[in-house]
């Protein structure tokens, strides 16, 4: 890999009693916006907690920003931000006080932390609400203040665990836009954990899919989207049998689906040869659907209960 990895795990294993939550995860993630995707209970949050030393790991090694966390845990965390999934504010504190305090805990002098807290609250779009107690915030405000406290000390890597949870679509869009800006404007690497494909699909350059405590897939978003089976689903009104016979003569295996459409394995890198073949043989399909890309497919596979890594 050209860049030094921001996260590197080798054989990361975590068990709760007899249940294996992380099963020897090997990962090497470069800088960028990284989506940690998986269904609820897949092990995403546990993975984050283990690399941040919030939970002890049972086996394996973890390096963040090139430093072994077992040996340089405190110094490494100085360069890392974390917005947990659950509410974690300190009761009784105002929003701006809370973010200032988090800055101080990360090693900033008080004056700098206070100034920076206001900058970050501006950045996440908090107005006068910052002078209210965090206890009184709506879910959206709490998510924003969590992101502000994760960024206040200007980290090089930030972990955001399910930041869109509990938000309405408008709130989700705003938070995703904000997260997108973190990487694009500041080049702070972002690890976004989510069970929503849409979230990571929209803003992440690299995807890691976790299911049953194992990494199911890990690649760039572009590569995962290109990686797809050379299959297509043809929606056609008349002449299904003729079409199927013609496709078979061409050497393309096909079958009739229960919805009446024809599934064909064309084996080509694009749909163009199939479209040309149908035009040449006077077939008029209503629609030709490309097979789902690997991201969708792998994620759907991960969502199935008891699924095994591919």
């Amino acid at each position: 890999m050209a860049d030094n990895p921001v996260i590197e795990t080798k054989g990361l294993r975590k068990q709760y009693g007899s249940q294996t939550v992380l099963d020897g995860i090997d990962l090497e993630l470069p800088k960028g916006s990284i989506g940690l995707l998986g269904p609820n209970g897949a092990g995403k949050s546990t993975f984050i907690k283990c690399v941040l030393q919030l939970h002890g790991k049972d086996d394996g090694t973890v390096s963040l920003l090139g430093q072994d966390i077992d040996r340089h845990g405190r110094e490494t965390r100085k360069r890392i931000g974390y917005a947990p999934e659950q509410d974690c504010h300190i009761p009784g504190m105002l929003g701006c006080e809370y973010v200032t305090y988090c800055g101080e805990l990360s090693g900033m002098p008080f004056e700098a932390a206070r100034q920076r807290a206001h900058e970050m609250l501006d950045f996440v779009g908090m107005g006068q609400e910052r002078y209210r107690k965090v206890d009184t915030y709506s879910t959206g405000m709490k998510q924003r203040v969590k992101i502000a406290q994760a960024l206040v000390h200007d980290p090089d890597l930030v972990f955001l665990d399910e930041p869109t949870n509990g938000l309405d679509p408008k709130g989700q869009a705003m938070i995703l836009e904000l997260i997108e800006r973190i990487w694009k404007e500041s080049e702070i690497s972002v690890v976004l954990s989510s069970h929503l494909l849409h979230d990571v699909d929209r803003i992440c350059e690299r995807i890691v899919i976790i299911a049953q405590g194992s990494v199911v897939a890990h690649d760039t978003l572009a590569a995962l989207k290109q990686r797809r089976k050379a299959e297509a689903e043809i929606v056609i009104g008349q002449g299904k049998e003729a079409l199927m016979a013609a496709l078979a003569n061409k050497g393309w295996p096909n079958r009739l689906l229960s919805n009446g459409n024809v599934k064909v394995e064309h084996g080509e890198s694009s749909l163009n040869p199939l479209i040309a073949f149908m035009r040449d043989n006077d077939f008029s399909p209503l629609e030709i659907k490309e097979s789902p890309d690997a991201l969708n497919e792998l994620y759907l596979q991960a969502l199935k209960p008891g699924s095994q890594p591919a």
Binding site: L52, Q53, L54, R74, E75, R77, K78, I80, Y82, P84, Q86, D87, C88, H89, I90, P91, C102, L105, S106, G107, Q149
Partner: peptide, 16 residues
């Protein structure tokens, strides 16, 4: 209070 409000997570995730 830190345990009940989960603020302990924030302390543990900082450079402490």
């Amino acid at each position: 209070q830190d345990l009940a409000s989960q603020a302990i997570v924030i302390y543990n995730s900082k450079a402490l």
